[in-house]
């Protein structure tokens, strides 16, 4: 549905998009995550024809978006991150106005407009002035507006920012409905856990590149597989570390005051084997758990933004402990 190949965009000397590649299948809800300034908005604006790319290709439904942007405009609905509304215009007139911008006759499209207002829960507001709506309502109105021409691809730039939890929930419901209706949705956000619930796929962007992307389920699996295990034991921790080090599929062993943290390379079978192995070697296990990793951790991990979540600086690697911790200052 949306394919981006080798997209580059420079603002003057600053490179905002650097060889971006992305593919979104029809019917997917794709979450676009990245720190501020990663280039999410830039990408979206290029796809919508609001910005010119320096090089690269963008195809929407097989149509070259960079060279025939007029054909694209009927296929794409865009909800910008910041948007204004007109003074002195009523909700229903606002919708009529955009319907006429797409060449629809006011009377033919009335039912559709009512349907859309219903969808975004603004039916009772149709005679209110748009500048009098709350931010969340404006946001929803903007979504309804972007859907007026029944686009195949809906692009939402940080739709959840500035919304209260309830409005956020409602928006999420709307998007879920749209996803069920078979629309392809590209959505950017900072709110990772929510994206995880809403999206079928996720792409993580940083410095104008797509760092990683994939299906949410796959990413969850992957993260689950890579999550470190926390081991607590009554017996001497150093002994346990030595035992762990002998095992082939254990890596990244470190320890703090009362736990050993290690990564295990393998599925649940490997975990079960590890436990029985430790017990058979007389390690007195009192705690063994797999760390709950969420998207947030993955995000911080992948974008290299190592914000101390559990104070990793307190951790000393097992090697340092074994060596008496004399080179700990180097970290």
């Amino acid at each position: 549905m949306l394919t981006i190949n080798h997209l580059c965009k420079r603002y003057g000397k600053f490179t905002a998009l650097n060889d971006l590649n992305l593919h979104i299948d029809r019917g997917e809800v794709f979450g676009f995550i990245g720190p501020n300034g990663a280039g999410k908005t830039t990408t979206m604006r290029i796809v919508c024809g609001l910005l010119k790319a320096n090089s690269g290709e963008v195809y929407v439904d097989g149509i070259d978006a960079l060279n025939c942007s007029s054909a694209i405009k009927r296929k794409v609905g865009y909800v910008p991150d910041f948007f204004g509304v007109y003074d002195n215009l009523k909700v229903i007139e606002y919708m009529d106005f955009f319907a006429s911008m797409y060449g629809y006759d006011k009377n033919d499209i009335r039912e559709t407009i009512y349907g859309l207002l219903e969808l975004v829960n603004l039916s009772d507001k149709q005679d209110s002035f748009v500048d009098g709506l709350s931010r969340g309502m404006k946001q929803r109105l903007c979504v309804a507006r972007a859907l007026i021409h029944d686009p195949e691809l809906l692009i939402l730039d940080e739709p959840a920012s500035g919304l209260d939890p309830r409005a956020r929930y409602e928006l999420k419901e709307i998007l879920r409905n749209l996803g069920d209706m078979g629309k392809t949705i590209l959505i950017s956000s900072h709110i990772l856990p929510e994206l995880g619930e809403m999206c079928t796929s996720i792409g993580i962007m940083e410095k104008g590149r797509l760092v990683t992307s994939g299906k949410v389920d796959d990413i969850n699996d992957k993260m689950h597989g890579e999550a470190p295990i926390h081991i607590r034991t009554l017996s001497d921790m150093n002994e346990a570390v030595i035992i762990l080090k002998e095992m082939p599929n254990i890596s990244d062993i470190s320890m703090n005051e009362d736990e050993i943290i290690a990564k295990i390379n393998g599925d649940d079978e490997a975990v079960a084997n590890l436990i029985s192995n430790l017990i058979s070697r007389n390690v007195k296990l009192i705690g063994f758990e797999k760390e709950q990793v969420n998207l947030e951790t993955l995000f911080l991990d992948l974008t290299g933004n190592k914000e101390p979540k559990k104070g990793p600086d307190d951790f000393l690697s097992a090697d340092q402990i074994m060596n008496g911790g004399d080179n700990s200052g180097e970290n």
Partner: peptide
């Protein structure tokens, strides 16, 4: 532009 409504107008097929 100031009201940030121009972008939305430009995403419509109107020339």
């Amino acid at each position: 532009r100031e009201r940030q409504t121009l972008d939305v107008l430009l995403t419509t097929p109107v020339s």
